[in-house]
Nucleic acid binder design. Structure first.
Lengths: 327, 327
DNA sequence: ACAACCAAAGAAAACGGTTTCCTTGGTTGA
DNA sequence: TCAACCAAGGAAACCGTTTTCTTTGGTTGT
């Protein structure tokens, strides 16, 4: 110690109370010399805030959760908040155990992250008095949710295609049961309308797979197709786009010359693997995680936060597959 | 309260000390009625153990880290231990900030997870008096590391091919700079030797990409190739296998009839997308995370743990691409 | 010269548990 | 009958901070 009481030391280090500058100096110097680190737990005990958040996710595969978690963790560490990771795997029992653990660890708030915006995590939140935000998953009435704005993202992609002069823009997408499907379709329709274009037929709805993209290419460009063929395809995800482009290559249809292709997800591993590289809508999930974190901090601070779902903007990553300026 | 002192209550709930069974009952009933949760922080303060671990990772993409993290988190939650996730992104400054945060939060131990077994995380661990294990990353001398046993995994794959009657087994793999490359190559050589076979040429070393796999197919099966062609290819990862199989399809080489293909990583999204589905070596990263966690708990308990790298067994996931019994 | 005030620093309580030690009263054995 | 012992439960210290309240001594105003 620097010859002062703990009370003085505490004030000196936290810039609180009034004291002689030289005393403050002396304490801080001593702290530095001792490599002193305040014990966050003791601090939490008295302040009733642990500066800790829980992240519960059922997305083992990590395609959605990991960017969200990274964005959350990054934004939080700057504010002295750390994030517990809980993998619950769609198992209600495991979810409960993890939720209990989070309560015992006195987290200040909870982020619930899923892999489908229209499915809730298998958690019973009733009787829980913690701030909670729902990310990329369904929220209960009155809850607070964060998602990418799929509709706007889709519109972004389609508007880009229209801006490049494409006129017959088809849409190949996933199963109708997914909420993302109608949202992305709505964006497609809106952007077409705004560009004065008509939809090229109805969207082709199948699975979120390369295989379906491959088959969809046959439906759109195969021999039994009528004279009217699309000059662009907006795909519901990158896997579909990948399969579609593989099929187009086999059919001798040139990308982007004959047809432009845009995907959704900007999953690097797919977007970079297609020939040419795939233009795709990036859901900016890191930013989603960031915003979710900042919002939950506001809630912890007692600020009033409007219930509802926030849809955050996507951005278009332009590569070669849509022609024009890109790449 | 159930009419007893806090001391008695504590003992009742922790099954400690001696007391009348009915007193214990009464306290536990009261605890249940009040939905009582012991405050982990207060407990940590006195016991000097936070039942908390830090997971620092530079693998933003999550391909390696997420399974490790899930395995770790799962194994730990059963033991009342929670895991902080810290995304450090190869940035030494961010690494330091997160490390400081973990020290302030009084974690009982640290798991450092990377995305390359031959690279250490950008962290200065000197002067750190915490148990640390290194997962899928380089460890300092005397440190404790966990990795999949690439050599044995590769041997598993090649032995399987040999067992199916394949005799001319080629190897297409990643850049020589990666430690995984010589390890997998060694497994290939060992399994060949054990089966009484010779290597089919030297391994083709390139990038970990579909594109390289595609080109490698040309080198192995192209028109300028000699009369001897492989009847099996063991690929250094699934992306290479995917590119190779795409090329084979274009070249009219049948899989698995003309040539069997095996990949490495068992990355579902690739392994399932190939036609036919890809047999691949699964690194069992969840188990790696589990073991790393259990070991660090041992270290926390003061048990002596041998320094060195533990290589955990891989398993072969058999699908159609290698013919034989699979799928 | 003395009351009033103020800045600086320390004492002590609090946070929510665990643990050590002590008290109480009943039972046992000589 | 009395010492010795034991089980049950309570009092209090402790973990490492923050915060409130108190003390101390110097300065100001009259």
């Amino acid at each position: 110690m620097a010859g002062v009481s703990v009370a003085t030391a505490s004030k000196a280090l936290n810039e609180r109370g009034s004291m002689m500058p030289q005393t403050r100096e002396r304490v801080q110097a001593a702290a530095r010399a001792l490599n002193f680190r305040p014990n966050a737990m003791a601090r939490a005990l008295v302040s009733q805030r642990s500066f800790t958040l829980g992240l519960l996710t059922n997305d083992t595969y990590g395609r959605f959760t990991l960017p969200v978690a990274a964005g959350l963790s990054e934004a939080m560490v700057d504010r002295g908040v750390s994030v517990f990771l809980c993998a619950i795997e769609d198992d209600p029992e495991r979810a409960r155990v993890n939720l209990d653990a989070m309560q015992e660890k006195c987290v200040d708030g909870l982020v619930l992250a899923g892999k489908r915006v229209d499915r809730a995590l298998p958690l019973d939140l009733s009787g829980l008095s913690l701030p909670v935000v729902h990310v990329y998953s369904a929220r209960p009435p009155g809850g607070i949710g964060f998602e990418p704005d799929d509709e706007a993202g889709a519109a972004l992609a389609v508007a880009h295609l229209a801006g490049l002069g494409r006129r017959r823009i088809a849409h190949v997408t996933g199963p109708v049961g997914f909420a993302a499907v109608p949202m992305r379709e709505a964006g497609w329709r809106r952007a077409l309308a705004e560009a004065g274009l008509s939809p090229f037929g109805e969207p082709l709805s199948g699975e979120w797979s390369e295989d379906f993209g491959f088959r969809a290419a046959g439906l759109l460009f195969g021999p039994e197709t009528g004279p009217e063929r699309p000059d662009a395809v907006f795909c519901g995800n990158d896997q579909i786009a990948r399969g579609l482009m593989d099929a187009l290559a086999l059919m001798g249809v040139g990308v982007p010359d004959d047809v432009a292709v845009v995907g959704f997800d900007n999953w690097e591993i797919f977007a970079q693997a297609t020939r040419p590289a795939l233009t795709s809508v990036d859901m900016a999930l890191k930013e989603v995680g960031r915003q979710a974190g900042l919002t939950i901090l506001d809630m912890i601070d007692g600020k009033r936060v409007e219930p509802g779902t926030r849809r955050l903007p996507c951005r278009l990553v332009v590569r070669r597959s849509c022609g024009g300026a890109g790449g």
